[in-house]
Write a protein that binds this DNA or RNA. Structure first.
Lengths: 124, 124
DNA sequence: CTGCATCCATGTTGATACTG
DNA sequence: CAGTATCAACATGGATGCAG
């Protein structure tokens, strides 16, 4: 996605930024807190390091995720949602909710995401 | 997008169905009522008839849009959201809202969609 | 008018291997 | 650990022509 140019419609801008095959899923995994590169790889084994790196770089350029590198041995890098990225959470939740409905309608069992980071209420 | 296979996560299912470069935008245009093929072309001049046809066919296969052909001369075909498609409206609205925020943060003027079908309150 | 078929250019993704 | 390099495969886009 170009992620630049003029958008004729807000939806077009959203698609340009979070479109692509993996970005939405990636953001969903970051929804509940920062993750390391290797943590994302475990969560999303179907995404190659190349595409993961590319997606993270582009989301960083668009101000959606923040990259924090800790100068340690071995290296550690954490990715987290920025405030602008957190503003996407309603979108992600709506997509998750619809996905559950879709899978139910299709007679499929809606699985929890890896690790179970479905949107859940605070339990006092 | 394959739109089949096993999804490990509801978000994955949503991306598979409404992912791609144009589907979300197309659904956004159908949000406020049925449109004809030519109407969609006017709304989305950047989408070639080939890709528009492909997107509509796939959305039809997934039960998101319904195709109604009127046996007239000249032919008339209308596309509308199915109930499952209407269930996507919260997703579309959330994306639109976020797109507006994103464009404001970027210093761009958030445009109304072609024809002005932004989600608006009923004005009595 | 509403599309589908074909060819071809370009862009995006995947697989594997490799580096700081 | 956190990526990058290279090449191959696939998806997407444009142009044109054609059919119901």
């Amino acid at each position: 996605m170009p992620r630049n140019g003029t958008y004729h419609c807000p939806v077009e801008a959203s698609v340009a930024v979070i479109g692509g095959k993996w970005k939405t899923l990636l953001l969903w995994k970051l929804r509940d807190g920062p993750l390391r590169f290797s943590g994302l790889q475990e969560c999303l084994p179907m995404v190659t390091p190349r595409m993961l790196s590319k997606a993270l770089r582009e989301l960083g350029e668009d101000g959606i995720v923040a990259r924090t590198a800790y100068p340690e041995i071995p290296p550690r890098v954490e990715y987290a949602l920025t405030p602008l990225g957190e503003a996407l959470i309603p979108v992600l939740d709506a997509m998750s909710a619809w996905g559950i409905k879709y899978m139910l309608d299709a007679g499929l069992r809606p699985p929890d995401c890896c690790g179970g980071n479905a949107p859940e209420e605070e339990i006092s």
